[in-house]
Design a protein around this nucleic acid. Structure first.
Lengths: 218, 218
DNA sequence: CCTTCTGGTGAGTGATTACTCACTTACATA
DNA sequence: TATGTAAGTGAGTAATCACTCACCAGAAGG
């Protein structure tokens, strides 16, 4: 992971974060090893070794091992959630700049696909650890409920009122839309990353699959 | 978890497994704690304590901590995979005892839903640990590739040839079918188990969602 | 009655763990 | 040049870890 990118990722609320060179090495090493063997199985001594710093340096910046985990995961979750529907994206739809839900879906999928591509390690860590750390679970749930869900809700009910989408409980519909996308992202980057993937074809198929499943009957 | 059920679960290839009372307690305790806090974060001393046995007793039956994990996970994975399409199920379809793919899907979903309901803890453990333990990953992949995938393939291509299902790469179609089902099972039992769920309505919606997405165009 | 076997025990062990702290170094500002 | 401050160090520590081992109990068989 490049340090400039790491730096960018950890920026929250546009607040600049000062990172020492060593501090960046610590974060990069921690991301790598947490993703490889899991948080609980990772020794701080190993992080220090791979980062090329003394073990004490880690605890100078992060009072406990768990703070290091949170320093990685929280900004990652926020960055994943916030731009899901960039504010101008939703406007575009209602300004008819998009043909319809299908185009929106396409933009959304490619967007999250690229994010996942650049953050496989963090994605792994979040998926693995959020079950065991209430703070992570809370961050995920909050950013979803506050950032993602309302915009999805607005969008979907809009299309439903316009008669373009089927009537179906909102949560069920969201799950039906998100599941195949997440399923693809996870198989693409985590379960079977080494296979040859024709992403464009896959995305096309997923989109048409989802659309058929949720569009209003003719 | 009842011991009789535990006993049943651990039976592989119909070979009876003799379980001491203490041994059963060890397994039950290990399942509980592994699911709660993860394998790596679980101390053998804690398992012994909750099981009400001496720590040495664990290592009398399982040479290493990891063997205890595998003794839980492997039979769980096998029991989950093998009956996915019970041999008579596929026959039924081609004997026209099912109306079509839709009925098959319904049986499949309710079947796996009940399995998940009875095995939430093991499900959690498998989801959490299979990323870090090659033996688990291998077991999952093998039982999927050998038991599940061929039967799915046979079934789907059958329906495709009969002109009932859309032409779509097999793997993509399988992922599209499985993702919403897994997505529901995971939200139902792991992410949000305490919510009130109208399972029948959910399943109906999921089935119609999937069917619209994969059936051949009229 | 003696032997053998299996199941069970719990104190003990060396290795590893997260974390501490007295100390050094680098650098900015007075 | 003196001084304060933040970054960095690494030996040290108490706690905990997975695992061992000498020993005990009871049942089975001769």
């Amino acid at each position: 992971m490049q340090e400039s990118y790491l730096h960018e990722l950890l920026k929250v609320d546009d607040q600049e974060i000062r990172l020492t060179e060593k501090q960046a090495h610590i974060l990069a090493a921690a991301i790598e090893i947490f993703a490889e063997k899991g948080y609980a199985a990772t020794a701080t001594s190993e992080i220090a070794k791979r980062a090329g710093v003394a073990e004490g340096t880690i605890f100078r910046h992060y009072p406990a091992k768990k703070d290091l985990l949170l320093a990685i995961v929280k900004p990652g979750v926020l960055k994943f959630a916030v731009p899901v529907f960039a504010s101008n994206m939703v406007e575009h739809i209602f300004n008819r700049e998009f043909d319809g839900f299908e185009d929106l879906l396409s933009v959304f999928i490619y967007n999250r696909l690229d994010f996942a591509r650049q953050n496989v390690a963090i994605l792994r860590i979040v998926l693995q650890e959020f079950a065991f750390h209430p703070e992570i679970k809370k961050t995920v749930e909050e950013s979803f409920l506050e950032q993602v869900y309302p915009k999805i809700k607005e969008t979907i009910t809009g299309f439903q009122k316009a008669g373009r989408l089927k009537q179906m409980p909102l949560k069920t519909m969201v799950r039906c839309i998100v599941s195949p996308i997440l399923g693809f992202i996870i198989t693409r980057f985590i379960l079977n990353p080494d296979a040859e993937w024709d992403e464009e074809q896959e995305v096309d198929n997923i989109i048409s699959f989802i659309m058929k499943g949720i569009e209003a009957e003719a």
